[in-house]
Amino acid sequence: MRTSGVGLVMVIPPGGREETLFASRTAPSVLLADDWLFISHGDRTGRPRLSKVVSGLGLAGALLAEAVLAGAVAIDSGTGVWPWQRLAGHPTGFAHRDDSNRVAAVVADQIHHEPEVLPVRVWLEWYADQQRAYRLIGERLAERGQVRVQQRRRGVRYRPVDMSGAQWRVIRICRLIRDGKVTEPTDAVLIGLCAATGLADWVGRAAFPVSCEQAWAVLQSVGDLLPEPIWVLLAQVEIAVGAAVMAHRR
């Protein structure tokens, strides 16, 4: 596993064993979850490109990644997720209140609401379930008029208002996977999610056929661009997606 030197906090539990806590200070926040929603859903219909469960896990991953990059939550080496509230007043101040990103603040509030520090896997499943992540991101887009809301029998669907804008995001990410010239952490996260959810095998257009293998290869090359908690998060998305495939379908 990589160490990026972005932020390290030691947490000493009552037993005295030291646990490393990773946080990020990659402010200002960029709304990468919006991009992920457009990439992982059809540009015309707004239908998810992957199965319901995997699509939900991808959105949950994007939501948590955004919150981590915004500094609203931190992830420790044991994959526990910490909201900024529990680290407030901490001298490092990596996790902090960030009112510019309301969704990240909501996520931190919800995570703080739980008395126990829960592992990333649990939060991924929680936000994937019942379209929770999809609704949080979709409503933000709807408020800015970027998607149309459709209430359907089996939940809500957000259709892009600007189809070409949605298409452009897909083409852009495919081009990045093909060329491997990644300079922004948010792009690296999107490529990581493409690989971890398997979307890379399906998102490619005729002009830019890409694969998961390529996405993994690009991800291996970005190295220090991403802070440690994002690596932990991406690995947990991959694990959750694998477990969902193995699971019995009800």
Binding site: V9, M10, V11, S77, T92, P119
Partner: peptide
């Protein structure tokens, strides 16, 4: 990856 997450208490030092 760690397979089961420990849940350390909230005491920290830099």
């Amino acid at each position: 990856m760690p397979v089961q997450a420990p849940t350390p208490a909230v005491t920290s030092r830099e």
